[in-house]
Computed example of a mutant assay.
Amino acid sequence: MAMIHSSAIIHPGAKIAAGVEVGPFSIIGEHVEIGEGTVVASHCVIKGRTRIGRENRIFQFASLGEIPQDKKYAGEPTSLEIGDRNSIREYCNFNIGTAQDAGVTRIGNDNWFMAGVHIGHDCQVGNNTIMANNVTLGGHVHVGDFAILGGMAAVHQFAIIGAHSMAGGGSIITQDIPPFVMCSGNPVAPHGVNSEGLRRRGFSAEAITQIKRAYKAMYRQNLSLEEARASIAVASAETPELQVMLDFFAASTRGIIR
């Protein structure tokens, strides 16, 4: 049985799984689906075509599934999808997608969103990311697995945040951050490889060494980006961990931070 407070307002069309908890004064809309074991605290608003997976924890005053902050939006039936085991803290707001992109804003699994995080329309967020207080993602941003964004970091529309990368607090990110790279500042600038994070996630010493060499090819050897990509492609034959960098280069459209 779902445990729903008597003051919560749940539309009859909403699909609430067994074991879901909904706190006082929260509002759940008609097209919302919430998976088993998810906890929705008090004063949350979840609306639109929003599907939430299992065992998420949504803290008070969160707003999920509201329409995009995009003047082109004209009421199209777009959606928000949230995976499993995410922590969504106070005042987070995640918007649905738009017809001009995938039509869905998508959040993966095991992410940690601190207070006040804004996920704009059509963003695609992977798994195991951390976004500290007041991080802002403009529309259409893609964030790779295990990426970390420090408090008040702001990401420009259509930018890509590579897997295992890390941006310091207050960073202004207007171009793409390659996987594994640490950066900070306004404008944001690279500051080496997130070696400690990679060790904690089980990367071998040899793989980390090769990732550092790839970083040097991009930033320390006065190579053009195409030359650096060619060097990394050769190294990836023996270090498969570098393939994520090649995939990133293929998807990048805004240019990488340099």
Rank of each mutant, 00 (worst) to 15 (best):
G138T: 02
N134K: 07
Y91D: 14
S231I: 01
H11E: 07
M182C: 12
D101K: 07
S42T: 15
E55S: 14
R201W: 02
P12D: 13
E76K: 04
G120P: 07
L80W: 05
N111Y: 10
G23E: 09
L242S: 00
R258T: 12
A115C: 08
R254L: 04
A189L: 10
E90T: 11
G168P: 02
E90R: 09
K15Y: 00
S252N: 03
M182V: 15
D247M: 02
G97V: 13
S195N: 00
G37N: 06
P12L: 00
F203T: 05
M166H: 01
E196W: 09
L80E: 09
M166F: 14
G108W: 06
R199F: 10
G29K: 14
R89K: 11
S79K: 12
A102N: 10
A250L: 02
G192D: 05
P77W: 01
I52V: 05
R220S: 14
H164P: 10
L80Y: 11
M3I: 08
S165G: 12
M152W: 08
I9D: 02
D84S: 05
S224D: 02
A102E: 10
R85L: 00
N93V: 10
K72S: 14
I232P: 04
T78C: 15
S184Q: 13
K47W: 02
G116K: 05
D110Y: 13
C183T: 12
R106K: 15
V181D: 01
L246M: 10
T50N: 06
Q243H: 10
T98I: 11
G185D: 04
A41L: 10
G170F: 08
